[in-house]
């Protein structure tokens, strides 16, 4: 089992400035899954509760000179503490910039190693960051779990495959900050968020308790997938009435999720996506949020990076 690569400048930027700060807020540990072509960060994929977060990078986005081999069809997976990884990357970057004097030749190497830590009899696996200077080298070891076994990797791959299902209707939120501000304030009012998404391009987010109902509605969002025209007679109704009618007609779906989960998924905005798509999986299985990244300076989707979250749906009876 071998993994060795150099992080590109773009890769370092993506990880240090955007993705690791977001992952750090999503949860303490995550799986890193390496294949011949891709690197994945996977949060909460194997245990059902909590927000699942899946980030996928094509290898050349992050690395050059990417070398990977394993007897398990060249797949390696392990879990690690995200905050340690984040710290290691941050300090490697600062060392790099400090010693290179801005020269790009000073590259950051990342590799999988086994080492004997002090006071241990067993060698332990580490993800090692190595920064070579003119006269010295700085090495940082991030402890990782034992690499997953063949059967565990298959389990992870299966969970990953099944997490790729697209909701039939997705609505696009262009300005995610607005939603974030709103949900941040809403947190004080209740714990359960009702999310309704219609084929007309309406997204409604609402908290409802015995004392208060507080919600926001975004209308006329662009729709991907199944879409229909909103009936003219609904135009002058209140937001609640409209969404209730749309659900009754089968033009909208509604699920309840935890406010905490929703606000956690909003941390993904730290990755600076260009927009976010919200959709409800068939049978209301989960709320899916897909973040879209554009190739810088264009209006084309950057297919080499993908990020999405799946929020578990609360049983309507349990809250």
């Amino acid at each position: 089992m071998k993994f060795k690569a150099f992080l590109t400048e773009n890769g370092v930027n993506l990880l240090e400035k955007r993705f690791l700060p977001a992952f750090d807020k999503m949860g303490k540990t995550c799986f890193v899954f390496l294949t011949k072509e891709h690197l994945f960060f996977l949060h909460n994929l194997l245990n059902g509760d909590g927000v699942q977060c899946i980030a996928q990078f094509r290898k050349d986005v992050l690395f050059d000179d990417y070398r990977l081999s394993s007897q398990n069809e060249d797949r390696i997976a392990f879990s690690l503490d995200v905050s340690l990884l984040y710290r290691a990357v941050k300090s490697s970057v600062s060392i790099c910039t400090e010693f290179s004097g801005g020269l790009a030749s000073n590259r950051l190497q990342i590799k999988l190693v086994k080492k004997l830590p002090p006071n241990c009899t067993q060698p332990m696996p580490f993800l090692t960051f190595e920064t070579k200077g003119y006269k010295s080298a700085v090495i940082q070891d991030v402890p990782i779990s034992k690499p997953l076994s063949r059967s565990q990797v298959i389990e992870l791959q299966t969970a990953l495959d099944s997490a790729q299902d697209l909701p039939p209707t997705l609505v696009q939120v262009q300005d995610p900050n607005q939603l974030q501000n709103f949900v941040d304030h809403m947190k004080h009012v209740g714990d359960v968020l009702n999310v309704t998404i219609s084929k007309h391009g309406d997204l409604q987010v609402q908290i409802s308790t015995t004392l208060i109902r507080l919600g926001t509605e975004f209308q006329r969002l662009s729709v991907i997938g199944e879409k229909t025209q909103a009936p003219v007679e609904d135009r002058n109704l209140s937001a609640q009435a409209r969404s209730e009618r749309a659900v009754a007609r089968g033009d909208a779906q509604s699920v309840e999720v935890s406010v905490k989960h929703f606000s956690k998924s909003l941390h993904c905005h730290l990755t600076k996506p260009d927009s976010a798509f919200y959709g409800i999986a068939p049978q209301g299985a989960c709320l899916t949020v897909i973040f879209q990244f554009m190739v810088p300076g264009t209006r084309q989707t950057d297919k080499s990076i993908s990020l999405h979250c799946r929020l578990p749906v609360l049983d309507p009876g349990s809250s």
Binding site: Q178, F182, T210, L211, I212, R213, L214, G215, T216, E217, F218, Q219, R220, L221, S238, A239, Q240
Partner: peptide
């Protein structure tokens, strides 16, 4: 225009 916030307080 295309978004609104609403609330009902008991």
């Amino acid at each position: 225009l295309n978004s609104c916030i609403y609330s009902e307080i008991r």
